[in-house]
Design a binder for these strands. Sequence first.
RNA 1: GAGCCGUUAGCUCAGAUGGCAGAGCACCGGACUUUUAAUCCGGGUGUCCUGGGUUCGAAUCCCAGACGGCUCACCA
Length: 499
Amino acid sequence: MGADSRDGSPPREEGELVRQRREKLARLRDAGRDPFRITRFERTHLAAEIRDGFESLEGSEARVAGRLVAQRRHGKATFADLQDVSAKIQLLFRVDRLGEERYRGLNDLDDGDLLGAAGTVLRTRTGEITIAVSDFTLLAKALRPPPEKWHGLRDVEIRYRQRYLDLIANEESRRIFTVRSKVIRSLRRFFDERGFLEVETPMMQPVPGGALARPFITHHNALDIDLYLRIAPELYLKRLIVGGFERVYEIGSVFRNEGISTRHNPEYTLLEAYQAYADYRDMMELVENMVAQAASDALGSVQLAWEGHEIDLSPPWRRARMFELIEDAAGVAADQLETAEQAREVCKRLELPAEENLALSTMLNNIFEGLVQPSLIQPTFVTDYPTAISPLAKARADEPKMAERFEPFIAGIELGNAFSELNDPEEQRRRLAEQAQSRAAGDLEAHPMDEDYIRALEYGMPPTGGLGLGIDRVVMLFTGAASIRDVILFPHMRPPAGG
RNA sequence: GAGCCGUUAGCUCAGAUGGCAGAGCACCGGACUUUUAAUCCGGGUGUCCUGGGUUCGAAUCCCAGACGGCUCACCA
């Protein structure tokens, strides 16, 4: 890999291609035509507007601007493709229309340059909608050549580190981030239409609560206190429910100091929503309607093609109790999974870890993650998680060991987490005290005690349903992206070598 | 954190057995007034990721390191 193509360090020796482009720029400046002195360009149409409105635009004048992405020179006529935010459009330069001198100005242009052009809308004899250029202006010189036009930019490291190049070169990448934006817009509209208030709560928190995860630690100098980047906004949003905002939601980054994988980025986008006087069943209806709406808005369909499967997002989604799914997968009845010894035998048979020191809950979880989860292709709400691992969720009245909680799965991916919120302050205190004990015993992901949160509950929180949804994963599902990094514009990377 | 794989021209990629560093696109020069991966003729523009080592000789073999990808582990 030559020069500075993949790291962030200053360029070393410049290549021939860059040198040539600098010389062209210098010539333009010497001629008093420095493109970087231009401040604006009056554009009348986007490329897509000309394409879509061709019938009424044919023969009229248009002014377009964008990036020059291809040139086809034929002596006294030249075709070029101009890419703007909406689409590509072909330009036709003819010496008899531009004059010798302006036509020679094409020699100053390179692929990658930003160009403004004015001309007449027409269709060539091969049917291509084209602007026959009467005047053009270089609006910015690209001193570095763009990636190759046919193969695009494949190198994933450069695609992530220099996302602008990925976006220039790869239509699919532009599509993914457009879908992402549409999904988020759809979610906002969905909640706004249902009377939810969008709020912003602290990203830096003195107590990192609302989830079970390791936080990033930072320091506030003036206050001389450590703060934690939030792992979830949950406890603040529920304080707002106490305050009387009966429906609130927040879409924003959360930060978890954990491993990176195709499904995990240390910084990711979480949607959380809380609705007073509702429970986890209401949250299920909310989720299935919301995701179906988002797919419809962003993709125009509630059917998704996913690795050979047709996924149908239309409500209602399947509901299934976690233990029933485990029983089915393990091929045994519930009473055969009540002790660690029984579970160990089952795990052995299923070729899952079965060491002597494994706890019952760990083995059940392994069965779920190993056998059940990959099979949950069609949308499924998995319900009834153990209360012991759900410290903020209300326990089932008829079965206190189980929480009123569910996680939505699609395409084998866990998309979120939701429950009937625990609003009994005394019970909440007991649960967090237990967690704090585990924490003291070394479990860095146990939930910390939060006295102010409990105090808030003591003022009275209505019964409330709450929801968290991983937006990045939804976008992965919608776009078929294989890695979460493909749906995050600037994913975290190790600093480049020599940078 | 572990295992496996990768890193060669601006980009996409070839380079068995160690023996002058290659192709396509891009670029430069020339021809060409309706092409659209334009075509035709001519031209190779390079820290072969980095640092050691083996060797007469290393892109190639060995060691160490950097960065990336995948799988696993932790997690959403």
